[in-house]
């Protein structure tokens, strides 16, 4: 296991140093997308990697977070930044309500239930046009922070601003997830992942802890959705779509669902690939499926743990 300090150091260096190698400002955009995806995938690392539970509907929470940034300012006059926080609280509350009944399910049943939840959210967003303006999407107001920075003499381009903003958000998210890993709650989550029955016999309230992991990961997804909406200044129901959920799970599995650093590499690879290999644009979904299958067959622990094991040799 790569330690917390090393992980944070690697991530911070990647965020800070990468721009020196960017050939054009377009790469700031890709970088910020990687961090946004990385944030959501870090949430999934907590749910899938720590707690051993699956969700195929987490994009639903991204939809809630994203649309909060569009709707709350428009209807209630909230600042978009506050709207993102309200959206995260709302996502957490919904995750708590939905999670209570469905987290009793295991394996395939849980996958299907969460899948249903995600589809439900994206359908509501697409169909309730009176509120969400339907499938064509809706505008999101500017966060306004860039202008404030300009006033204090920090003049960033739009893509630069979002690169740094998402980067910082991602590193904070990673820090929290790493804190959780090495804490009583994190140990309890990993314990119930290892053996639910043994976890119960040492006094772990399995239902409660699973729910906590589900709520935390929903908040991560919601904040990722808000970040995406705010930087695009526009959002469509696709953000909550099934493919988006699958993308995130694939990133988590590819990188190694158990590790935050793995989550980052999974997000980085699968965000960059379609951008770099534009030929693959039409085959993106096939690529995702292929990656998922190859991971499951050849490296079930994910890319990072498998590579680390190769480097360190077979002995433990």
């Amino acid at each position: 296991m790569v330690t917390k300090r090393v992980t944070l150091l690697i991530l911070a260096i990647l965020v800070i140093a990468s721009p020196f190698f960017f050939p054009s400002s377009f790469y700031y955009r890709i970088g910020s997308l990687i961090f946004v995806n990385g944030l959501a995938v870090t949430g999934l690392v907590i749910l899938i990697g720590y707690a051993g539970q699956i969700s195929l509907g987490h994009a639903g929470f991204a939809g809630i977070g994203g649309y909060s940034c569009a709707l709350l300012p428009a209807h209630l006059g909230l600042h978009p930044g506050i709207a993102a926080i309200v959206g995260a609280i709302l996502s957490g509350a919904i995750a708590w309500l939905v999670g209570r009944p469905i987290l009793r399910l295991k394996g395939h049943y849980l996958a299907i239930a969460t899948l249903g939840f995600g589809i439900l959210v994206s359908m509501v967003l697409a169909n309730e046009a009176w509120l969400t303006k339907g499938p064509d999407g809706i505008e999101v107001p500017d966060l306004g922070l860039k202008d404030v920075l300009e006033l204090v003499g920090l003049d960033l381009s739009n893509s630069q601003f979002w690169y740094w903003f998402s980067g910082i958000a991602f590193v904070i998210g990673a820090w929290v997830a790493l804190n959780l890993y090495d804490s009583p709650s994190g140990r309890a989550l990993r314990a119930l992942h290892g053996s639910e029955i043994a976890a119960r016999t040492v006094g772990i309230d399995v239902a409660r802890l699973k729910l906590q992991a589900f709520v935390i990961s929903a908040v991560y997804a919601s904040l990722a959705g808000s970040l995406l909406a705010l930087q695009n200044k526009f959002i469509t129901p696709d953000v909550a779509g099934f493919m988006h959920s699958i993308e995130w799970v694939t990133m988590a599995v590819l990188g190694g669902a158990g590790s935050v650093l793995g989550a980052f590499f999974g997000a980085a690879i699968l965000t960059t690939l379609p951008q770099v290999l534009t030929v693959f644009q039409e085959y993106e979904q096939i690529l995702l499926g292929l990656v998922m299958m190859l991971c499951m067959i050849f490296m079930r622990d994910g890319l990072l743990p498998s590579v680390l094991r190769l480097i360190r040799g077979k002995d433990k």
Binding site: R190, G194, S195, I197, A198, A199
Partner: peptide
């Protein structure tokens, strides 16, 4: 304790 071990193997 358990007859068939219930250890948290990856920890």
């Amino acid at each position: 304790t358990f007859q068939n071990l219930q250890i948290f193997q990856t920890m």
